[in-house]
Amino acid sequence: MSLIFRLAANRCCVNQILGDSKNGLSFIRPVTLKARSADVPREEGHDERNMKLGRPQSPHLTIYAPQLTSMLSITHRFTGMTLSAYTIALGLTAAASPELIPNAIENLECLQLGELAISALKFTLAFPLTYHFWNGIRHLIWDTGKFLTIREVYATGYLMLSLAVASAIVLSVL
């Protein structure tokens, strides 16, 4: 700051800096500000603003080819929601039902659905659990910074899928 004042003093005389108006030279100039009301921008939506600016709409997922990585991510979220729904449904059923769970299992056995149908039902219930479990393990390994190249992501994706299906099959035949 002192450098600025020194340079100003060298260029101008002291009277100009102090504002000597007798000589007509004044370094300090009076400024008047005129107040006016602020312009309030009109509320417009995202789409309206982009159309006015000539921007194209973002493409939807339907134009992209399905990839293993995106499908595994979507399936992981879906299986998490399915497991939550299982938990809520079983909890509410256990709380509201006058019968105990062994009685419900006995009633299911009385339907005589056959071993294949029971195994298919067990697989349907077990697959979201095994998929979410193995994909969660995969994500935990990623958190350590391992297997993050595209080639390794696809390899671990296929490995996780095979482990999930094999585990669900094992659980469904027990």
Rank of each mutant, 00 (worst) to 15 (best):
M1R: 03
L3C: 01
L3E: 11
I4N: 10
L7I: 00
A9S: 10
A9Y: 00
C13A: 09
V14S: 14
V14R: 15
N15T: 02
Q16E: 14
I17C: 08
G19A: 11
K22H: 13
N23L: 06
L25V: 08
S26R: 15
I28F: 12
R29P: 00
V31K: 14
T32W: 05
L33P: 04
L33M: 07
K34V: 11
K34M: 10
K34W: 04
A35T: 06
A35Y: 12
D39M: 10
D39N: 10
D39C: 03
V40H: 11
R42F: 00
E44G: 02
G45E: 02
G45V: 02
H46W: 06
R49H: 01
N50S: 11
L53S: 09
Q57V: 09
Q57T: 08
P59F: 08
P59H: 10
L61A: 12
T62H: 10
I63A: 11
A65E: 04
P66V: 03
Q67L: 11
Q67G: 13
L68F: 02
M71Y: 09
M71N: 12
S73Q: 08
I74E: 03
H76T: 07
R77Q: 12
R77C: 07
F78T: 09
F78P: 01
M81T: 00
M81P: 00
M81H: 04
S84T: 04
A85C: 11
Y86T: 01
Y86W: 01
L90N: 09
L90R: 10
L90T: 06
L90E: 07
G91W: 01
G91P: 09
T93L: 14
A94P: 06
A94I: 02
A94D: 10
A95M: 13
A95N: 08
A95L: 12
A96S: 12
S97H: 14
S97F: 00
E99I: 09
L100K: 15
L100V: 03
A104D: 05
I105Y: 06
I105F: 07
E106L: 13
E106F: 00
E106N: 10
N107S: 11
L108C: 15
E109C: 00
E109H: 13
C110M: 14
L111S: 04
Q112S: 07
L116F: 03
A117K: 15
A117M: 11
S119Y: 02
A120M: 01
A120S: 09
L121C: 04
F123I: 01
F127C: 02
P128S: 03
P128A: 06
T130A: 06
Y131E: 04
Y131N: 06
H132C: 08
F133W: 03
G136V: 06
I137M: 13
I137Y: 07
I137D: 04
R138A: 08
R138W: 02
L140N: 13
L140G: 05
W142M: 03
D143T: 05
D143A: 07
T144W: 09
T144G: 04
K146E: 05
F147H: 15
F147Y: 15
L148Q: 15
T149K: 12
T149M: 10
E152T: 00
E152R: 14
E152Q: 15
Y154G: 05
G157V: 08
G157A: 08
Y158Q: 07
Y158H: 09
S162P: 03
A164F: 02
A164L: 05
A164Y: 03
V165D: 02
V165G: 04
A166Q: 14
I169Q: 05
I169A: 06
L171S: 07
S172I: 00
